[in-house]
Nucleic acid binder design. Structure first.
Lengths: 164, 164, 164, 164
DNA sequence: TTTT
DNA sequence: TTTT
């Protein structure tokens, strides 16, 4: 069945610099860990902090961007899907599992000055916002794009006087 | 700056059959309204239901799918971004605003039998899941896809014994 | 029907300092606008930036936190639900609509140094992370619930003639 | 710091009836697996289906609702946060990890007739929509909080050797 | 292993 | 009206 949703959205800090590899077929893969922290009141009513660590995997063009601009400590927004892989442990012969977030969108947060490992901080890509895979923008049709009086859809709609 | 997130996720029922139009440039546009309901306790502690209506706009290939398979009453998951358009009311000369959800992903929910207005209910596309724009899947590299022992990433990862 | 989802997730910058009010029943309400920006390629293949403006409404304890710690220019993550209110324009007698995000969770992004309007930047609450409301519904204040002409917030807002 | 986001949103079908337990401190815990499916084009351009399995954990009042109304095969929307627990495998002495979604919101999808395993299908709670927990943190039960060897759920789970 |  |  094709109806489903598998979405993860995280805001956190990188626990390490992204590790870049290339597959045999020439695709770029990048891995890093991400810490998400949240506070909560424990049973005594005291504030505590709980940190959760996530394994992030990024493929393709977005992997290249992550590899270039992300550093340990950087705060990012990550969107992706959950994926659990299994493999046979060569030592024990046991089946093992690991769950990762396959990243499909990434946004750097804060200003470049937060960058963490940063220094010669040329922290931003020249062509901004190409951070996401061929995905989200849901671009309106090219033809009448320039004609629209505001940020919205096609001109036809603007005849209407009432929203509904 | 290009760092931002503008995401809407809705689960609700269509208030009307999708209305399909074509722009001058030949792009398909589809509009429909979606009702999302939620319950809440009022100040007297009684359960009440609150229904919110949303204007949905869909472009391109996904619009064609919506036009073909969605009907009034159908339960769907909608993902998109918020967009507020303005126009000048020809009668009063006032500036008016309307906020819409520009849909980038759609999933039909429930079985076809829930369809609502349905009848000759051949409710599903033959090629399922092409419901989303060229987006989410974050497809692993083609080259070694068939080699993977499980649902996961590239083979390199499976040498690892520990998740982190 | 009670099954539904109405969720908005935004990352952007405040367009103005939060405006704090109190309802007749003593509930705190805060309003601000949020700009979310995204890049896209126009029909000529050039990168463009599109900014969308959102009206944010926050109630209760979370409103107090927003009022205290957020400033114009601050980058934040906002989670909430969409709500369209209507009112009768006292001048023209027309029915008008405005769509807002009723905020149920807020996270300040970047370090305090990004704050924007900041100065004597004591940017963080002592008791962190109590940023989220007790629950999803983001219930409007009890006192004037029955009085509201539409599905929206408190009556005070309905004096306004323009969405922003 | 407490600023972070750790959110998972799934739409899928239950792989088994929910398993209900009670902790020593009297809190209800429910576990089930959820399958999310998505289609994609493989490297030959053919449509394939990929199913991902997720472990869901639910606490408290929402656990009771899940236990009562959900059945194997039922389609649901699940919202929660990712949590990776570790434990020492008693047989091999190795450290093992499992990642779960701690559920904070649940919506039943489709009509009751979709229920799957259902039969005497009085599928809906009388007081609808009280499906969400009081708040985001999805706090584990207070009573045994200090006893947990890792960041995870109740001790009972750690007897298991396999994630599923 | 991150961050405040 | 924000931000880079």
């Amino acid at each position: 069945m094709a109806r489903g949703l598998n979405k993860v959205m995280l805001i956190g800090h990188l626990g390490n610099d992204p590790e870049r590899r290339e597959t045999a077929s020439g695709q770029t893969v990048v891995n890093f860990t991400l810490a998400t922290s949240e506070g909560f009141k424990d049973s005594s009513g005291n504030f505590q902090e709980r940190t959760e660590w996530h394994r992030i995997v990024v493929w393709g063009k977005l992997a290249d961007i992550c590899s270039q601009y992300l550093k340990k400590g950087r705060q990012v927004y990550i969107e992706g899907r959950l994926q659990t892989r299994s493999w046979d442990d060569s030592k024990t012969g046991e089946k093992k599992y690991t769950t990762e977030i396959v990243c499909s969108d990434m946004q750097m947060l804060g200003s470049g000055r937060d960058s963490g490992g940063g220094m010669g901080d040329s922290s931003y890509p020249q062509e901004r916002q190409q951070y996401s895979r061929p995905s989200r923008p849901a671009e309106p049709p090219a033809g009448n794009y320039g004609e629209r009086p505001s940020s919205g859809g096609a001109q036809e709609f603007e005849k209407d006087d009432l929203p509904f």
